[in-house]
């Protein structure tokens, strides 16, 4: 008999927290709408970037529970280093489990600056950071530390994975889906995040933040949103009586029975498209076109979406005819109508 021990148990938790911090960034940070790309394990665990790379959101995640203020201080080191670097970051966020309330002046907030801590604990935080800096042999300026601590945010993980996923994209009937649906999506994002870390960039140099894109250690925010939308559509597709209202305009000349047959046909097309991995690229192109058209103009008609779709794509996508594309567009468009 052999019992496994000393395995890397912490890895699962760590990666989970990294994903959560990513989702937090997209769902709750300041000016989150400006985040266009998320760099993975480059500047920090997760770094949000605006389209031009001029605005940067920095996140360090630490899934360790019951951190003391001193430990919290130590965790801030990577964030401080970024603060201290040539690049200017918009936000500095430490994403950790719930902090013991005794350290905080008001433990209900969930997001705390250094001032959220009690005076003593705040000092401990600073001490921890300073200690860590000394330990790593990083020179620092005291004022910088103080300025940094004024800007840094410490965010508690207060929600479950489902909620973090829900917060990326608003879609209809989110709350009717059970948690395992969201957890599956969470895992998918988590997996991708892990994969992104496989390349080796230690020692590489970049001039501008935007140059990080050359390393392919990033995820497009739109892609993430598209992923979530796709999952919603997939799970809703064969729901009984699913009839997106936008599709009615297309089919208004049809008799009820013919309409039902048409809808069944569209759903079958989309279902097959979802399942056929050989046409994955084409499908995502179509899907991307649909999502970006709707983002550009939430009131765009589904027939316009279909028309503006490049013919090269649709020809290769064997499962979807025009009606299928329009039905899919309608599902996405109507699903997104609740988006903030």
């Amino acid at each position: 008999m052999y019992v496994f021990s000393n395995t890397e148990r912490t890895n699962k938790k760590a990666s989970e927290y990294e994903t959560k911090s990513l989702l937090y960034l997209l769902g709750h940070s300041r000016d989150k709408k400006d985040i266009s790309v998320v760099a993975i394990d480059c500047f920090n665990d997760v770094t949000g970037m605006s389209e031009t790379g001029e605005k940067l959101w920095d996140i360090q995640s630490k899934g360790v529970a019951n951190l003391t203020p001193r430990k919290i201080g130590r965790c801030l080191i990577t964030l401080f280093k970024n603060y201290d670097s040539d690049f200017i970051f918009f936000d500095y966020i430490l994403f950790i489990p719930k902090i013991d309330e005794k350290y905080l002046s008001d433990g209900t907030k969930g997001v705390y600056g250094i001032k959220g801590f009690n005076k003593e604990q705040a000092l401990k935080v600073k001490e921890g950071l300073v200690q860590e800096l000394i330990k790593h042999g990083n020179p620092y300026q005291k004022e910088k530390v103080d300025c940094f601590l004024d800007k840094a945010l410490i965010v508690e993980n207060r929600k479950n994975t489902s909620t973090y996923v829900k917060d990326i994209v608003r879609f209809k009937h989110q709350n009717t889906k059970d948690n395992s649906f969201y957890e599956e999506i969470f895992k998918e994002i988590q997996n991708l995040q892990s994969v992104k870390k496989h390349s080796y960039i230690e020692g590489e140099v970049i001039e501008k933040p935007i140059d990080v894109l050359s390393f392919d250690r990033y995820i497009q925010v739109n892609d993430l949103k598209m992923l979530v939308i796709n999952r919603f559509v997939g799970v809703d597709l064969f729901n009984q009586n699913m009839m997106p209202p936008s599709f009615l305009g297309v089919a208004k000349n049809l008799e009820v029975q013919d309409l039902q047959d048409l809808i069944l046909d569209c759903k079958s097309q989309i279902g097959k498209a979802f399942f056929d991995k050989n046409q994955r690229r084409e499908f995502w192109s179509v899907f991307e076109h649909i999502v970006s058209s709707i983002n550009g103009d939430p009131r765009v008609s589904i027939s316009d979406i279909c028309e503006t779709l490049g013919t090269t794509v649709t020809r290769r996508l064997s499962h979807l005819n025009d009606y299928g594309v329009m039905f899919l567009s309608a599902m996405v468009k109507d699903g997104l109508t609740n988006e903030d």
Binding site: D223, N230, R231, G234, F275, D276, F283
Partner: peptide, 10 residues
Amino acid sequence: FEFDLTNSYV
């Protein structure tokens, strides 16, 4: 785009 068309849940 690297995501799968669906996940097993869906």
